[in-house]
Simulated scan of single mutants.
Amino acid sequence: MRSLEGVAESPLSTVLNLTLQEEKYNLTLKEGNYGPRFYGWLFECHGFWHNVALIVPSALFVLYLGFQARKSFTKLTHGRSYIMISYYGCLWLVSLLNLAWCSLQAWECTPEKAVAWNVLSLFTTSGMLFLEVSLVAFLLQGNYASGLEALTRTFVVSGLIIGLDLLLKVIYLFGFGVPLFIDNNDQSHRVKWGLWVVHKLVLTAVYGFILFMYHSKWRERLPARPAFYKYITIMCCLNALALFACGLTGNGAGFGFWLYGLTMIFYHAFYLPLLYITFLSDFFQEEDLHLENVYYSEMKDAGFFDADWE
């Protein structure tokens, strides 16, 4: 009987031992091996291509700012433009926040990181919206908006709008439990998508109004730069597309959810470079042209070009 019991129990004990060994192995992988962590960070949640499409452009833009930092700082110091210095500093801060947001997409699908993800998303989206609103506020001040007074007006108006927007998001997010920044399994959350519809509708209306001004008799009140017009056109189309996607998703359409994700990728990956090209790169190029004109005048006064006239 004992031998039969031993034969009968040995397979069971073997299975238990193998199960325990497998659990220990999996625990070791989670604690000590970075392979599974890297795989989950890059491939899980929204998928590989979604994460790469966010991380690569954001990282490249931060690297570009880093390579140009010394040269840009020198130009800003000599230019002494409060508006440009402030925007450049805000752009650096928001770019780093956006890079962190794009790199930590796995937090969105991790319940233990829900609070950290919501806080990071709040700061990132508020920072980017601050740049949007402040640039629009600056444009609406007209062609001659410059100096400390214009900067103060711009930042006060933008700060009030962003503060109100941030307060409402905090109330809905932490007070009512509306998952504003978690988009993996809540396509039919009508309250959430209703809030995003209102948010995108306001932005679309503002950009549409500025486009209307460009084609009306009030056009002379706006800065006469084609780059600003292109910027407003792009942002109006992007927000209108996001508005349409939020409306579809709120009604349970899977295509709307996919389209909304696509607009989010374009916004977080390319908005900050678009802002830089529109508002800051011209300033740096103008400084280069100004320095070239100064050097040319000095050389001309010194007689370097007298031989060309002989």
Results as ranks from 00 to 15, higher is better:
residue 96 L to H: 06
residue 77 T to A: 02
residue 49 W to D: 11
residue 247 G to N: 02
residue 278 T to M: 00
residue 72 S to C: 09
residue 262 L to R: 09
residue 270 F to L: 15
residue 2 R to Y: 00
residue 203 L to W: 08
residue 49 W to R: 13
residue 130 F to S: 06
residue 3 S to K: 10
residue 248 L to A: 03
residue 237 C to Y: 02
residue 38 F to C: 14
residue 183 D to L: 13
residue 234 I to E: 05
residue 254 G to M: 09
residue 78 H to A: 13
residue 110 T to N: 06
residue 248 L to E: 10
residue 86 S to F: 10
residue 124 T to A: 04
residue 28 T to H: 13
residue 107 W to F: 13
residue 76 L to H: 07
residue 81 S to K: 03
residue 294 V to H: 00
residue 161 I to M: 01
residue 52 V to A: 14
residue 180 L to P: 04
residue 286 E to W: 01
residue 21 Q to T: 13
residue 292 E to W: 06
residue 3 S to H: 14
residue 85 I to E: 00
residue 106 A to H: 05
residue 23 E to I: 12
residue 223 P to I: 15
residue 4 L to I: 05
residue 51 N to S: 10
residue 135 L to Y: 04
residue 126 S to I: 02
residue 245 A to C: 11
residue 247 G to H: 01
residue 208 G to L: 01
residue 154 T to E: 08
residue 259 L to Q: 01
residue 225 R to I: 09
residue 186 D to R: 01
residue 65 L to D: 05
residue 78 H to S: 08
residue 310 E to I: 12
residue 156 V to K: 03
residue 243 L to A: 10
residue 7 V to D: 10
residue 121 S to I: 07
residue 136 V to K: 00
residue 274 L to A: 04
residue 96 L to G: 14
residue 260 Y to K: 09
residue 89 G to N: 15
residue 141 Q to P: 03
residue 11 P to F: 03
residue 161 I to P: 01
residue 62 V to D: 03
residue 250 G to M: 06
residue 4 L to Y: 00
residue 206 V to I: 13
residue 290 H to M: 12
residue 7 V to Y: 09
residue 52 V to R: 04
residue 54 L to K: 00
residue 136 V to H: 03
residue 158 S to G: 10
residue 44 E to P: 04
residue 271 Y to L: 11
residue 131 L to D: 11
residue 200 K to D: 13
residue 231 Y to Q: 00
residue 293 N to W: 05
residue 133 V to L: 11
residue 38 F to I: 15
residue 98 N to Q: 05
residue 208 G to I: 06
residue 123 F to N: 01
residue 277 I to V: 15
residue 68 Q to E: 14
residue 53 A to W: 06
residue 237 C to S: 11
residue 54 L to W: 06
residue 92 W to D: 08
residue 17 N to W: 08
residue 255 F to K: 07
residue 203 L to M: 13
residue 137 A to W: 12
residue 238 L to H: 09
residue 42 L to Y: 08
residue 250 G to W: 02
residue 117 W to P: 03
residue 302 A to N: 02
